[in-house]
Every structure is written in C-alpha cells, then in structure tokens.
Design a protein around this nucleic acid. Structure first.
Lengths: 241, 241
DNA sequence: TGCGTGAATTGCACCGGTCCATTTTAAAAA
DNA sequence: TTTTTAAAATGGACCGGTGCAATTCACGCA
C-alpha cells in the first residue's frame, strides 16, 4: 500500500502541507518536485491529481499549484468522508465506541428488486440482516442488509454481529471497495422513533447502498436509517475529469 | 471539450456499452483498444479509469475489463449525480421546468464563519441571497447563498434571479467547477413548512456547500433546505485511488 | 479423468520524453 | 509612466516504451 511511488509522494506532500511548510500556499512546480523526489514527472502528476481530487490543492496551468486554504483552516468540516464505505469504518475514528446489536437474521427468497440489484436468478436466496448500530451505547442507525447466501454460505449470527466487511475480506480475500450510494431524508416511522429514541417530529436520514467486491460482484444491498443528527455526508465534488 | 483524445474514447465507449455491443459484458483488452482507436495505451487507460470511477466498468488485473451489469439494468437509480454541482444544473435534465423566486437580496458584513469559509478580511461584505427554487411551479428548495461583493461587484436583483453560476462563467470567464458539499437532514421549521408546503412532521434535507472557482477562490457559501422528497443525492464511491 | 505447471493474457506502475496552452514576467516601445 | 510585446514558467495532453503482478488457460503428466 505504501510501497507505490506516487502513494509515497502523496503521503509526504500531505505531511509537508499539514506542517505548513509551504507558507506562501504554493507548491514547487512539477518539474522541481520530480527532481526533489527523484521520480518521474508522471508520478508527481499522478500524486498531485489525487490531492486535487480530494480538494487539498488546486492546480492552475501557467500559474502553479496551490494549497486550499480552507483545508488548513477549516479542518473540522473538511474531511473527505466520501472515501469511507462501511459506516462502522467511517465512524471508528470519531473517538466514540461503536457497537452492534443484532435485531434479526434470516434467510429469505430474493425479491425481484434484490434479484436485479444483486444480479440473482429468481430462485436464489439472500440473508436478511437487521442490525442496530450504536455509538457509546447510543443507538443511531437501523441497518437492513441483504447478502446472497451463495457468496458467503457460512454466515452465522456471530459473524453477523460484527463487521461483515472485514469478515468477508478475510474469508473471500476480496475486499468491499466500491459502492453505489444514495442519500435522502424521510419521516421517521414508529419503529424508527422507538429504536433511535426520536420524537415524532424528528426525521431519519436514509442511506441506500449497493456494495461491490473488488471484482465487481454486487455483494450487499443495504438500507440504513439514521438518527438525523448522526447523518452527515461530506464530500469534495469536481465536475472535471 | 470533446477534442481531447481520451474524452473521445470515453464518449465512444459509453455509446458502445449502452448499445450493448459487448454482449459478454467484457471489453476488449487495453492493447486492442489502443489499436482500434489508434491512440496510445496511456490514453486508453485514462479513459477506462474515468469510466471505472463512475462505476460503469470494473477492471480486474489478469482478467480483463467488465461492464457493471447494474449500470445497464438499473439505470433509473444509477446516475452519477455527484458530478453535478449547481442544483439547477442537476435538475435541468429531469424534464421538469425549473424556476427561481427571489425572496431577499442584500449586502451584509461577513460573519466570522463566512470570513473563514470565503477567506475574507473582517471588514469585508457579502451578498446575502435568499431564493426559492421551484420545479414546475412546485417549490422544493430554499437556498441562502453568500457571495463576496468584491468578486462580482455588479450583481443585481435581475442577475440573481437567474443562474448565478452561468452569469459568473461569462463575466469572470471562470467556471464554478468544484465544491465541498455536506448533506444531512433536519426537522422542518415553520418557514420551511410554509414555503415548501410541508406538514409539521415532514423534514427537510439540508445541503451545505462551499463553491470554488477554477483557480480555487472560494466563491459562494450556500445553505440549501430541500423538501425531503426532492433530495436524493446519489454517487459512486470507491476507496481506491 | 484429474491435477499441476508453465506460458499466454491482461491490467498496473512507472519512466522520460514531445509539444502545447495559459499565465506570469520582464524587457522594449510609446 | 504606461502600454505593448516577447520570453519564461508552469501545468496539460499524449506518446510509446519497460518490467511486473494477477489471472487464465492449455498442455502434459499421473
């Protein structure tokens, strides 16, 4: 992971930027960086592109490469959480202790929609996994996941009470690295209110996701209903490719 | 825009994929594509990377490049809307007729938070622009935007009643191409309920954004409160870089 | 028939180059 | 001093390579 040239450059530049080494908010030009790091300009470009996509730097042809001042100042709100897929993972770092309470676990025939999303034949089965996620004992999310049994036939209550993704990574030697996410809001249902301690007027955030394995196999369809105060999705968006 | 080699490859591959030319869901290998298109393999790689980041294809070393089956089947939900910045723009294509109703327009001193986000000195001023956005006469979003007056001193009610971004693109010859977005949900206020015809129990989706010009200048801070049924943010997320 | 083993396939990282577009600069001209 | 013009700086697109790593496939052996 860290043995790639451009990754090392990214890591080091990140460090230097955070250490405020570039007081004028300007990075050395690509050719100089290429010299400094003793790597090709292509690798420098690759590294800079990653940083630019994260919103950490801006590049301006003819002018130079500049550090996004907000990135240094405003770090509180400026975190590229779009890189996190699993919800557990994206919250691990917040300091609070995450835990999981298994609500329901069974095997059911795949609905038509699930057949589509998970690319299954009409007679195939899926696990239905309902879990309550907590942070420091405080429930914040109701998660309903559907996973084809054929992908992980050995799933059981114990595995499902922990991180499914990290189990899969070991068992299948294939990580969950991609997902198609949709984010919206909804009125809370009675169940939501009960499980998440919400008042009747308080809403839930809804995140729907299809998660894929490395090789593109759709692995899980997940529907997440979050306490509205816990849902904050932040991302840096660029319309250029 | 379309005169770049890799862009042309993207466009063409997109067309071929959508036309279902690759029945086995597998693309030709990079070397063959390089031959076919008479461009270097680097350019093919670049094009494929873009498509992979959009979730349209999956690449697997040693195996080949494959089309995401969901992309063809499930196109309804599978649109990379993360590429859209301006809300007008992302809704233009939906068929409905968007319009804007100006609620309020004035110049105020920048608050401390705005000074930070827009990188202003303590004595600088900003426009405060409150607008109601509608789709087919139906209000769906309350938008409050803040723009430094020094960036566009000539702003007026008429300009502000249309698309500010496209005005800026012409006036400053600098497009708004990047933004830092945050998405959440909230209980609707009395004002929300009135303007968006919401019931007391119905929530709003909240989108906060800092929009940047090409050169990285923070241009606008915007706070958007959406009718919850109109907020759906969808994106393809990959943890690899 | 089944099983390894090695070759072919295929994508990945990286290099080092060419030419170009945009911006900045500095020098020259008015 | 101001304006114009030319040169330098800087990032962008693209090329065509090399060697490697993961996967697949076919062939020969048991």
């Amino acid at each position: 992971m860290a043995d790639l040239v451009y990754q090392q450059v990214i890591t080091d530049l990140n460090k230097r930027i955070m250490a405020n080494e570039f007081v004028d908010k300007k990075l050395p030009d690509e050719r100089s960086l290429s010299e400094q790091y003793q790597v090709s300009r292509s690798s420098i470009k690759r590294a800079l592109n990653v940083l630019a996509n994260q919103g950490l730097i801006f590049k301006k042809r003819g002018s130079g490469t500049f550090i996004n001042p907000l990135y240094l100042k405003n770090q509180s709100s400026f975190k590229y959480e779009g890189t996190n897929l699993g919800i557990t993972d994206s919250l691990n770092t917040e300091g609070a202790q995450p835990s999981i309470q298994l609500l329901d676990f069974q095997v059911i025939p795949a609905s038509q929609e699930l057949q589509q999303d998970l690319f299954l034949a009409p007679d195939e089965f899926v696990y239905e996994i309902k879990r309550l996620r907590l942070l420091d004992e405080q429930p914040f999310m109701i998660e309903t996941g559907y996973i084809p049994i054929k992908l992980v036939p050995e799933l059981n209550r114990q595995i499902v009470s922990g991180s499914i993704f990290s189990y899969v990574q070991k068992a299948l030697k294939s990580a969950v690295t991609k997902s198609f996410l949709s984010i919206s809001a909804d009125v809370s249902t009675a169940t939501d209110q009960k499980l998440l301690s919400l008042k009747a007027t308080e809403p839930v955030g809804v995140m729907g996701g299809i998660f894929f394995l490395d090789d593109g196999t759709p692995f899980e369809v997940s529907n997440m209903r979050l306490h509205y105060k816990y849902m904050k999705y932040t991302t840096f968006v660029s319309t250029e490719q």
